[in-house]
Computed example of a mutant assay.
Amino acid sequence: MDTEAVRSFVRAAELGQLQHAAGELGVTQQAVSKRIAALERELEVRLFTRTARGVELTLDGQAFLPHARSIVTGVDRAVTAIRPGSRALRIDVLGLRSAQAVVLHEYWRSHPDTDLDVVTLKVNDPHLAVAAVEAGDIDASFRSVTDPATLPRDVRMIHAFDSPLELLVGPRHPLAPARSLTPAQLRRHRIWVPGLAPRSEWSEFYDQLATEFDLRIDAAGPHFGDEVLLDILAESADVATLVGARDRYIWPTNHDLRRIPIVNPTLAYPLSLILPRTTPHPRLRAVVNHLASLTPLPGPTWRPSWATIPRRVG
């Protein structure tokens, strides 16, 4: 069934004249007449009778009108759901407690009128997030492809912000009393990052970090969730992990966990934003501008070799 013919029928029924319906729809009166005639042939009924004042619905037309209105409304809603600027801005974050989600929440608090849909794609390979952006399933993703040359032509990546790392330890750990730490002070201490996924950006990050500062990064074992990891840290005298300064973690007060900044240099995890190269969602520019306004990290900073992506849109 031709939905434009159904739309023409609805407007003609509501306005009572084919000429007025044609004016609203931006077509000729002849086009409206042909659409309605084709619809009548398909339905095998007469929908209108002509009068001196225009057109009036037949009994069949009266019965069909509420259903026709539902068809038009459904089509309009379907188009709105996929049209950038009319639908919510869909952005993928690594987790709802991650630094990306925290910064995105800060943006939304200052722009509460933004229709924002925060999603978490359950994928480790950033190229799968790239494919979702390319397909239009999401408008942007806070992921990094460490080799930008592998990006499809229609997708690009910009620098979002740097997330400084902190050491997270329990009260029995020998580094627990420290107010801050340098990377050299982390040597010989076990830094446990369970469940590092092959081909993930963070796996490559930790490989470069361990090589650069001679750190003992232990990725052994599956990751049973943050709660289990925090429980282990609270009881351990020799296990530590690394977390982002903006990442949100919640633990019982009796855990007495310590978050210790790492300085001289600050260890920065570079977060990128993947987005379409052309026709991005119109509300995405404001998010990128918010990211650009974030205060840069002070002092000397270490980043991995692939963190050289500029920040720009348009």
Results as ranks from 00 to 15, higher is better:
Y249H: 11
V169C: 04
P198Q: 10
L271P: 08
D162E: 12
E204P: 03
L242F: 08
P198N: 12
F64Y: 15
R90L: 09
E14H: 06
E56C: 05
R11Y: 10
Y269N: 06
A63F: 07
W202H: 14
R190F: 03
P152V: 05
A78V: 01
W202E: 11
G23Y: 10
A81N: 08
V313A: 14
E227F: 02
D247Q: 07
D137P: 00
S110R: 06
T278H: 14
V45Y: 00
T80I: 05
P261S: 08
A210Q: 11
L47R: 01
V6P: 00
L18G: 02
T73K: 09
A307M: 06
P84N: 12
A129R: 07
L168P: 02
R285S: 15
T182Q: 10
A13F: 10
W306K: 13
V133H: 05
S8C: 05
R199C: 01
Y107K: 00
H290G: 12
P148N: 11
H111W: 01
A292Q: 14
V313I: 15
R97E: 04
V228S: 08
I232D: 03
V6N: 01
P298S: 13
R90W: 01
F213M: 07
G244S: 10
R153L: 07
G95L: 01
R179T: 12
P280W: 01
P270F: 02
H223A: 11
T295D: 13
A63W: 04
N124H: 13
L271I: 14
F161T: 08
I309M: 14
G61H: 06
A286S: 15
D218S: 05
V313Q: 13
L104Q: 03
A38P: 08
G195S: 11
Q100R: 02
E166R: 11
H173N: 08
L175M: 06
R46G: 06
R216S: 14
I309F: 05
G170V: 12
M157Q: 15
P126Q: 09
W202D: 07
S144I: 04
Y107R: 00
P296Y: 04
L96M: 13
A237M: 02
A240W: 08
L151Y: 09
P194G: 10
H67Q: 14
T253R: 13
L25Y: 10
L230Q: 04
P296M: 09
L230T: 13
L209R: 10
Y249S: 06
L18A: 12
R259A: 14
W251T: 14
R216L: 05
R277N: 12
S203D: 14
L167V: 15
L181R: 11
A38L: 10
S33W: 07
V75P: 00
R7W: 01
V243R: 06
A132G: 07
I158S: 12
P265F: 09
L15A: 08
R248T: 05
Q30H: 13
V55Y: 03
R46C: 04
S305P: 04
R87M: 13
E14Q: 12
Y107I: 03
M1P: 00
P276D: 04
L39E: 01
V287P: 06
A286G: 15
E204S: 12
S163V: 14
L94D: 08
H223P: 00
L196M: 11
V243F: 04
D207P: 02
V10R: 00
A184I: 00
E204R: 15
G195L: 11
R216K: 12
F64P: 00
L89F: 05
L151W: 04
Y269I: 09
A240M: 04
S163K: 01
S180Y: 09
